[in-house]
Write a protein that binds this DNA or RNA. Structure first.
Length: 415
RNA sequence: GCCUGGGUGGGGUAGCUGGUUAUCCUAUGGGACUGUGGAUCCUACGACUCGGGUUCGAAUCCCGACCCGGGCCCCA
């Protein structure tokens, strides 16, 4: 094999593309019905956009290069930063909230694995201009709705960074960030060692460990005991109430931290079975990034769905669609083209381009699984008609082109 | 970056205790059948991932690279 695709990339054949489009359209439809508008940002951006957001640590996982004008360019590794950049650059004075969705490819230089590629696809949603519990709830409910529409069942875990941060308010901000990273990794030992190192008060330390271990039903009571009626707690409670109204199933999980500093409030992740180590299909939360990119401080909430991962586990298949093969003879090829043109206004229509004989054209119709064959022969044309043959029953009748269209659109597919 | 399993025509495989021309199935093109499909037969096409080593001789044994799968790290 002389040439092959770069590592971690994929070719999608028609059958696979049909499945992908089918799911993509469902997600699109949900987003549209919830009032979100589709946007598209460039495939590449200035590299600072991503280092500003995520730190220099991500450089090792980014596809970057210098262009001919000596600019440092990066293929986007995710889409939240570009969306916020777009907002700061041209939409700061637009009516709030802004509600966007996107579906695009992203690039990361990582070791490929199940559910992990170097070029992968994200379907994401952002609300810009609000991070009230109402928008947080809408975002989570929308995420749940999207996965449902794709036929994917997942476990939704919701946490709140604001609550954990309030507990740590007497600790240096940089140290807080480090603590959150240990929490995100669920690295209790590392966290303990770090708390020793910065001489964290015993009382904070004990509360922190209890807090990040909280899960499920009684978690909220214990949170209240640990931190009291603080603002973040009240907001979180409103959010959870609203989610009940949305009829969304969730689990409180204060151990979710999502590592990065710009997450400020609610954070959530959705996990699925059957994906091996890459079991997270969706992640998001409320954040503040606009200021970092030179805009006014703005609250936002959003998430991204790992499209390739849901494709891996979703069962849903597009319906088999009807198709026609127009079969002709040496002396009726031109008439066949004219008839095919008419049929193509209504249904997928194939025409022989291999110079095949009559019989082989029908055999071809059979191998591609066409539901019908339209026979254009001299006998039929003399009567001003064509013959429509149903490939599954083998039955054949003489019809005009218009009748063929009617006939096919009215008949369900037989198997 | 680390650990681990694996790479034989387009797909699926046999061979892999080294030894003629690498097996079989399937798919694809052409033909036998000149206006009716799935069958049959003929025919064509087509592979040992790459590089090095051991050997008289390597698909087979050894080493490295590349790629794929699984796990770790990471996961914005």
């Amino acid at each position: 094999m002389e040439l092959q695709k770069p590592r971690g990339t994929r070719d999608f054949l028609p059958e696979e593309m049909e499945r992908r489009r089918h799911i993509e359209n469902r997600l699109r439809q949900v987003a549209t019905r919830w009032g979100y508008g589709e946007i598209k940002t460039p495939t590449f951006e200035h590299i600072e956009l991503f280092t500003l957001k995520s730190g220099d640590g991500i450089l090792g996982e980014i596809y970057n290069f210098k262009d001919k004008g000596d600019r440092e360019i990066a293929l986007r590794p995710e889409l939240t930063a570009p969306v916020v950049r777009m907002y700061v650059e041209e939409l700061q004075r637009s009516p709030k909230p802004l509600k966007f969705f996107y579906f695009d490819n992203c690039f990361r230089y990582e070791r490929p694995q199940k559910g992990r590629f170097r070029e992968f696809f994200q379907f994401g949603v952002e609300i810009i201009g609000s991070s009230r519990p109402e928008s947080d709830a809408e975002i989570i409910a929308l995420a749940a709705e999207m996965l449902k529409s794709a036929g994917v069942k997942g476990d939704l875990h919701i946490g709140h960074i604001g609550i954990v941060r309030t507990l740590l308010k007497d600790i240096q901000p940089e140290d807080q960030g480090k603590i959150m990273r240990f929490v995100d990794k669920k690295d209790d030992k590392g966290l303990e060692a770090f708390l020793d190192q910065i001489n964290a008060p015993d009382d904070i330390r004990g509360k922190l460990f209890r807090l990040i271990g909280l899960r499920g039903e009684n978690a909220m009571h214990e949170v209240q005991e640990l931190v009291g009626e603080i603002e973040a707690f009240k907001q979180f409670k409103v959010l959870l109430d609203l989610l009940d109204v949305y009829d969304v199933e969730y689990q409180v999980d204060l151990g979710i931290a999502r590592g990065l500093d710009y997450y400020t409030g609610m954070v959530f992740e959705i996990y699925c079975e059957g994906l091996g180590a890459q079991n997270q299909v969706c992640g998001g939360g409320s954040y503040r990034l606009a200021q970092l990119f030179g805009g006014e401080d703005t609250q936002s909430t959003g998430y991204a769905i790992g499209f390739d991962r849901i494709m891996e586990i979703c069962e849903s298949k597009p319906e088999v669609s009807k198709s026609i093969v127009v079969v002709s003879f040496e002396d009726t090829r031109k008439e066949a083209i004219i008839i095919a043109r008419k049929l193509r206004m209504h249904i997928a229509t194939y025409l022989d381009v291999m110079g095949r004989k009559f019989k082989d054209q029908i055999a071809y119709a059979n191998t591609i699984g066409a539901s019908h064959v339209v026979i254009v022969g001299k006998n039929e044309l003399d009567a001003g008609k064509v013959a429509l043959k149903d490939m599954s029953t083998g039955k054949q009748e003489l019809l005009s082109v218009e009748e063929v269209v009617d006939h096919i659109s009215l008949t369900p597919i037989s198997h």
